[in-house]
Amino acid sequence: MSIFGDGITTAQGRFRIWWYQIPVFWRVQLVVWGVFSLVDLATRSIVYQSFTLALTITLVMEPLLMLVAATLRAAFGRMGFDGRLSGLAFGCILLLSAASAVAVVSAMTLVRAPMGWNIPDWNSRQEVLAPLAYYMLIFAGWSLAYFWVKAELGGRTDRQRAALAEAEALRAELQQLRLQLDPHFLFNALNGVAEEIPEHPAAALAMLGDLSAYLRHSLAGVDKTVVSVAAETEALAAYLRVQEARFGPRLHTAIETDPAAAPRAIVSFLLQPLVENAVKYGDRESHLDVRVRIHAEGDNLRVQIQNSGTLAPAGTGALTRTGIGLENVRRRLALHYPGRHHFSLRQEPAGPQTEDCTHRDVVVAELLLEGEPCSGS
């Protein structure tokens, strides 16, 4: 690169550094009043019938206009206006705009009179009243725009804070779910291992391995909000194998995963409360069937968790393990799949005849997850 090119690049870099060191308000002021000065220059050229005189007056007046606008901003701040345009705020805008216009016209008159900068074909009244009305409209428009921008930025900040607070709360609940394991499940699983050790050490070892796999998934990924479907189903399978060892022939489980769905991303522990609910509240009078189906449908995932039994009436407290209830599942779906999910919990009529020659209703929790999940971080 030539020395001239290096010099230009360096100058551009220094300008950008200088520009971004200026507060945002003053950057906006420079741009807005810079554009306005061009319009003002064109207007004055017509009124004064002299471009040189119009340019001179513009160079004198535009810094004054910026200073008055900054004073208006400070006045609104001292009055405690937060951006909402109430009747009182609107009245103050008109009053302060009129006062600002009077100040600017007075200053301009004090400069114009000694310099002899008279406006051709205008009398003394026109030289005062026309600029007075003009600048009052300018300052009123600037004030209304300032209130609108301030209200918009304030609303955006509030929404961002609310979204961050919700995300933090959901992450805390997710960590609580992983760290505060169901004590009854853990106690019963360990007790089952202890009972199997004397007579069936191989079965006890297998049950202990499944429990370890489930705990590893629960604890190792505390900070990981999104995992693969394969990893999620592996943890579900380990959990269900432990439950099968506990309940024996009273519990039959199956997980069907579409190979195309296995590498897809899914929110970690999104399915766990639903599967636990199916085991806990399913009908084990003869035996309980729990089936998990995960299929890919284009870019979407369809998940069905089915158990034999009937749907608990609303308000009975089902699906509340460690505070992660149905409402939380829905809120996590809203966070990770905003506007891109469908969730239903329904009871279906009796299915095919079971092994004990009975027909039983089934409860189906179904999720349709569209696209990739947001990390929520």
Rank of each mutant, 00 (worst) to 15 (best):
2 S>R: 00
4 F>G: 07
7 G>C: 01
11 A>S: 15
16 R>A: 11
17 I>R: 15
23 P>C: 01
35 V>W: 11
37 S>R: 09
49 Q>C: 09
50 S>T: 04
60 V>T: 05
66 M>I: 13
78 R>P: 06
83 G>T: 09
84 R>C: 00
85 L>I: 14
94 L>T: 07
94 L>A: 10
99 A>V: 15
102 V>S: 13
105 V>C: 08
105 V>G: 04
115 M>R: 06
121 D>M: 03
127 E>L: 02
145 A>N: 06
148 W>S: 13
149 V>W: 12
160 Q>I: 13
160 Q>H: 12
166 E>I: 13
169 A>I: 04
172 A>F: 08
178 R>N: 08
180 Q>S: 06
188 N>V: 14
189 A>G: 07
195 E>N: 06
196 E>W: 07
198 P>R: 10
213 A>H: 13
218 S>H: 10
221 G>V: 03
225 T>R: 09
230 A>G: 08
234 E>S: 12
237 A>T: 09
244 E>I: 06
248 G>S: 10
250 R>Y: 12
252 H>C: 02
254 A>L: 07
255 I>L: 11
257 T>G: 10
261 A>N: 11
271 L>M: 04
274 L>T: 14
278 A>H: 05
282 G>V: 05
286 S>R: 03
289 D>E: 11
303 V>N: 14
303 V>R: 14
311 L>V: 00
313 P>W: 00
315 G>Y: 13
315 G>W: 10
319 L>H: 01
320 T>N: 15
326 L>R: 02
328 N>I: 12
331 R>M: 04
334 A>H: 07
345 L>S: 11
348 E>T: 14
348 E>F: 08
